[in-house]
């Protein structure tokens, strides 16, 4: 799953640590999501979208491989 968290986070002027604190996870979790090593749960995805003030489907995009 692709995501635009880094771009949106930069637009908002937030560091990974700051975003992590707002959504109540560790900085490592935000880093893993941005690097596409980890797919967040629906709740976490909605929290991130809410903090970055972006629609969830603009923040996360499904890829071909997600359907297998």
């Amino acid at each position: 799953m692709k995501n635009a968290i880094k771009i949106q986070r930069t637009i908002k002027g937030l560091t990974q640590a700051a975003l992590a604190e707002k959504v109540e996870v560790t900085r490592q979790t935000i880093n893993a999501i941005e690097l596409e090593k980890y797919s967040p749960s629906a709740v976490l995805a909605l929290k991130i979208a809410s903090v970055l003030e972006v629609e969830t489907d603009k923040l996360f995009q499904l890829e071909e491989k997600d359907w297998s």
Partner: peptide
């Protein structure tokens, strides 16, 4: 110290 879903994973 900080538990979240990624740590659980």
């Amino acid at each position: 110290k900080i538990e979240d879903e990624y740590i659980s994973n």
